[in-house]
Design a binder for these strands. Structure first.
Lengths: 218, 218
DNA sequence: AGGTGAGGCTACCCGCCAGTAGGTAAGTGG
DNA sequence: CCACTTACCTACTGGCGGGTAGCCTCACCT
């Protein structure tokens, strides 16, 4: 009578904690990236992870904790991916080129990571936004260093340094925006994306560095 | 005994509907821009507006309706501000230049409008995100038209058209990102911001158009 | 004066969802 | 085979906040 005819849809049972944590984080990134922090429900995350809700709480803590862990994990991944592609002894333009390629490769491969980091993290006012912003600022400063280095290498001083930060902010923004665009155009390769940006921006930098400027004609 | 010594903190009483609607929308934009759609509460909006919650519902409808009206109002403002600064009979670079200046002037003056449009609108999956994205796409296409026009004017054909959309996406992203950056550097004028972008981007375009390209050296 | 309708409010409802209490089953050491 | 731990679940609670029912009150008209 009380015989179990229907087995519950084959959940993997009794896995070690580390594995479950990975599954939960994967599911969380997926759900957060799709719905955003607030609209994502812990119930859905647990369902996608194939695990009951209390597991999430015992393993990863509150919703906010969980989101934080997602952010940190994906941010680390992204940084490592970019760093792995850059050799610091190359000239500035080549460093930028390789960094960009790695970046676009990462975005293409881990779309959800990128969406969580770029779109969703800022919507949770709090330490996460600050954390992501800090990472972004680091990227801007890194790029600024490249720009300034290229500038001084050609004998330009304080002028490059002054506008460098703003220009770098613009460049980073351009790179991010192009990443979003690329999400809807997967047929465009990372090399093409990176070279578009290089052509757009680096040539502009070079012109600037060499004293060529655009001025309004009226 | 039941004498009213304390007057309730002097709310303006019995104003015409149109005025109240303006107040409510102003308050909503302010609160939405600060906390984002989900974390903003109708109670707080009503408090900031100096009006009770049911008023919002009778005048502007549901929270989603309210947000939609904010988005539309601010989007219209932004578009009008930019269009007011552009004269269509000027050459492409001057059009871009004037458009950018108007844009940065608007962002500086109506920070909250910009934040709502740029940061918050995308976090509400639904028709708003689509609406804002559509507006953004229009901007990209507009810029793309300028780019292509500049390209063909110089005798370049399909090549400019192909990469034009991606480049424009990058340019619009750069402009937006620089706008965010400028929020934290109010001392930089709209003219300076616009000319940074022009120097960065337009010079890059020109080089491209004239066949000069950057290529990786390895 | 008193009727009427628009402006405005207090006080409540109720669904959704983060978070939890308390229990069961499956390994592990003796 | 029994104690003890670890993996894991079902089933609940509590509150926050979107949304509303129903009432008041002033201004103006006749």
């Amino acid at each position: 009578m009380s015989e179990e005819v229907q087995r519950p849809p084959e959940r993997a049972r009794r896995l070690p904690r580390a594995v479950r944590e990975r599954q939960i984080l994967d599911a969380a990134v997926q759900v957060f990236s799709r719905y955003g922090y607030h609209s994502a429900s812990m119930d859905e995350i647990s369902e996608v992870a194939g695990v009951s809700k209390p597991m999430i709480y015992t393993y990863l803590g509150s919703k906010e904790d969980l989101f934080g862990q997602c952010i940190r994990r994906e941010a680390t991944r992204l940084l490592e991916a970019v760093q792995a592609g850059v050799q610091p002894d190359l000239p500035p333009d080549m460093q930028l080129w390789h960094g960009l390629r790695s970046f676009y490769r990462f975005v293409a491969e881990y779309r959800e990571s990128w969406v969580v980091l770029h779109r969703q993290a800022l919507t949770v006012g709090g330490s996460f936004a600050a954390e992501v912003t800090a990472m972004r600022t680091r990227a801007i400063e890194l790029v600024a260093a490249l720009v300034v280095s290229a500038g001084t290498r050609k004998g330009l001083g304080e002028q490059a340094e002054f506008s460098g930060e703003g220009l770098s902010a613009a460049l980073v923004g351009a790179a991010e925006s192009l990443a979003d665009w690329a999400l809807e155009h997967p047929e465009v390769s990372d090399g093409v994306l990176a070279s578009w940006l290089m052509n757009l921006v680096w040539l502009g930098f070079n012109d600037l560095i060499e004293g060529q400027v655009w001025k309004p004609s009226d």
